[in-house]
Amino acid sequence: MAEEMPAGITDGEVMMINTLYINPGRWGEYQAALQEILPQARALEACLVLEAGQVADEPGTVILTERWRSGVEYVTEVLKLPMFEKYLAATEAMYAKPRTVVVLNSL
């Protein structure tokens, strides 16, 4: 599935909070995919912040906090990199329900 751009994305810096709901039976598989993509994504010049954590009292719920130097660059270049296409294609089938994405404006 192609990643759809959430409302609020501009050419300026973009911050997003993604909530992923992972099927319990796929947790180990998801962790492996995440551990593969995180260092690669963090190494990109366009990546300013990329953190992942599991909600303490909700096993299988993952929060990804992202900050990229340009929303347009994120959509047109970063998400089209083979490593992201591979990660998104593999992990989407692991979701218990659709992810939510919240775009934040910097204060």
Rank of each mutant, 00 (worst) to 15 (best):
2 A>E: 15
2 A>C: 08
4 E>P: 07
4 E>F: 14
6 P>E: 11
6 P>A: 14
7 A>I: 01
8 G>W: 03
8 G>K: 08
11 D>A: 06
11 D>M: 00
12 G>W: 01
12 G>C: 06
13 E>T: 11
14 V>R: 00
14 V>C: 09
15 M>N: 03
15 M>L: 09
15 M>I: 01
16 M>T: 04
16 M>L: 13
16 M>W: 00
16 M>E: 04
17 I>F: 05
18 N>Y: 09
18 N>F: 13
19 T>C: 07
25 G>N: 14
27 W>D: 10
28 G>S: 13
29 E>S: 06
30 Y>P: 09
30 Y>T: 08
30 Y>L: 14
31 Q>G: 10
31 Q>L: 13
32 A>E: 12
33 A>T: 06
33 A>S: 12
33 A>L: 12
34 L>D: 07
34 L>I: 06
36 E>C: 10
37 I>C: 01
37 I>H: 00
37 I>K: 01
38 L>K: 05
40 Q>A: 13
40 Q>P: 00
41 A>M: 13
42 R>Y: 06
43 A>N: 11
43 A>R: 09
43 A>Y: 11
45 E>I: 00
46 A>H: 11
46 A>T: 15
46 A>L: 09
48 L>C: 11
50 L>E: 02
51 E>M: 02
51 E>H: 08
51 E>T: 01
52 A>C: 07
52 A>M: 12
53 G>Y: 08
55 V>H: 07
59 P>Y: 12
61 T>A: 15
63 I>A: 09
64 L>C: 02
64 L>S: 01
65 T>E: 06
65 T>R: 13
65 T>N: 07
66 E>Q: 14
66 E>M: 05
67 R>T: 08
68 W>V: 04
68 W>P: 02
69 R>Q: 11
70 S>Y: 02
70 S>E: 00
71 G>Q: 09
71 G>C: 06
72 V>P: 00
72 V>T: 13
72 V>F: 10
72 V>C: 01
75 V>G: 07
75 V>Q: 08
76 T>A: 09
76 T>Q: 15
79 L>K: 03
80 K>M: 12
80 K>T: 14
80 K>N: 14
80 K>Y: 10
80 K>L: 14
81 L>Q: 12
81 L>F: 09
81 L>N: 10
82 P>I: 15
82 P>M: 12
84 F>C: 13
84 F>K: 08
84 F>G: 05
85 E>K: 14
86 K>R: 12
86 K>H: 03
87 Y>K: 06
87 Y>R: 05
88 L>Y: 12
88 L>S: 07
89 A>N: 05
89 A>F: 02
89 A>E: 06
89 A>M: 04
90 A>G: 05
93 A>C: 14
94 M>T: 01
95 Y>I: 09
95 Y>R: 15
97 K>D: 12
97 K>L: 13
98 P>H: 10
98 P>R: 13
98 P>Q: 12
99 R>S: 11
100 T>C: 03
100 T>H: 00
101 V>H: 03
101 V>R: 04
101 V>T: 10
102 V>A: 08
104 L>D: 00
105 N>E: 05
105 N>S: 05
105 N>V: 04
105 N>Q: 05
105 N>K: 07
106 S>G: 06
107 L>H: 08
107 L>S: 11
107 L>E: 09
